[in-house]
Design a protein around this nucleic acid. Structure first.
Lengths: 179, 179
DNA sequence: AGTAAATGCTTTAACCTTAAACTTTTCAAC
DNA sequence: GTTGAAAAGTTTAAGGTTAAAGCATTTACT
């Protein structure tokens, strides 16, 4: 290798290094992530606060009821924990408290005595209905400052982001119905 | 008011109502929020998992150390809790465990005996440095599927979203240094 | 039938989180 | 100087969260 060739190799290495480390050495992704996180936390904190102050409940309970609201016949605990993307044990506790409050009820499945099904009570349905309406308005209020078309764009791009994350996790998209 | 005028008023009211309720009756905001939340949760869950598996630590501890990493002289607990946007009591516990692990140290301020200052130990600095590097790579990996210019756009639009939320909360932007 | 694996859920231990009550120290105003 | 309010942190009670271990019950295989 003559001097020229050695210089070429060095250039190549430098270029690769620069490409990987320099032009945006993880910094652009990092600041995007930080801002995304800030937005999500800001909104979530506000929702939690209002749920507590105005309905004396919590976000996890709201989420659980939201899952139950659509169905009449109820949902198995396992499916509930999958949909909510939380652990089984977590659901056990949440259900316990909501049953305590009389908002949902649980019953053992008759064909499989291991499984349990939960569903809303009449009261639970009435209560949740009001909460959901308020929740919708809160979100609209909080995000309303963003123009309609920009919302659409954001939604699209977050879709790409979601794909990117799912791919990078190496996870199979995990056959799921929605979202 | 004649019939014509009354009709006009009704039209106006209807228009306002429609504008507020109908064309996208909170649904567009709601689905944007849900997707935003999904993205944030997906990323956060992955980061938590890797921090646990590869460094046997947690995200809150990582965040706390990140705040401390820049400064040499340490930070008061109160300021720490403000920057991390968590409660005072929360910081108390986190600091306790990190001190236990020998990653940070706390000392009472000499001029104000109520206040306490924490800062990193040598070991903490060394450990965090490695974690931060890995963390940066994880984020880059997870978000890397989104093109550079789209990242830029997303960042911009999330900026608008952040503003929208801050305004709607009625909160003063709260003089803060960064982000 | 009989056994082993799988499945559905609960329990446990540990941590994170908060609001509210509390302790200690400092500061301000007589 | 006293006294009272404000400020910095801690404690407490309640809840959310998970991974791992455990308990039944069901399923699969022979």
């Amino acid at each position: 290798m003559n001097d020229k060739e050695i210089a070429d190799v060095r250039d190549h290495i430098d270029a690769e290094y620069a490409l990987r480390e320099n032009p945006h050495d993880h910094r652009s992704e990092l600041r995007l992530w930080l801002r995304l996180l800030t937005c999500a936390n800001l909104i979530e904190a506000e929702i939690r606060k209002r749920l507590r102050e105005q309905f004396d409940t919590t976000l996890p309970r709201f989420d659980l009821m939201a899952q139950l609201y659509r169905t009449e016949e109820g949902i198995l605990l396992g499916e509930l924990s999958q949909r909510m993307m939380v652990s089984n044990g977590n659901v056990t506790g949440l259900v316990e408290r909501l049953v305590q409050e009389g908002l949902i009820e649980r019953q053992v499945t008759e064909n499989d005595r291991r499984a349990a099904r939960v569903r809303m009570t009449h009261r639970g349905r009435a209560v949740f209905s009001k909460m959901a309406e308020a929740h919708g308005e809160w979100i609209a209020e909080l995000l309303g400052g963003v123009g309609e078309s920009e919302q659409e764009q954001l939604w699209e791009q977050l879709g790409h982001l979601k794909l990117s994350v799912r791919n990078a996790k190496g996870t199979v998209p995990e056959r799921r119905k929605k979202q």
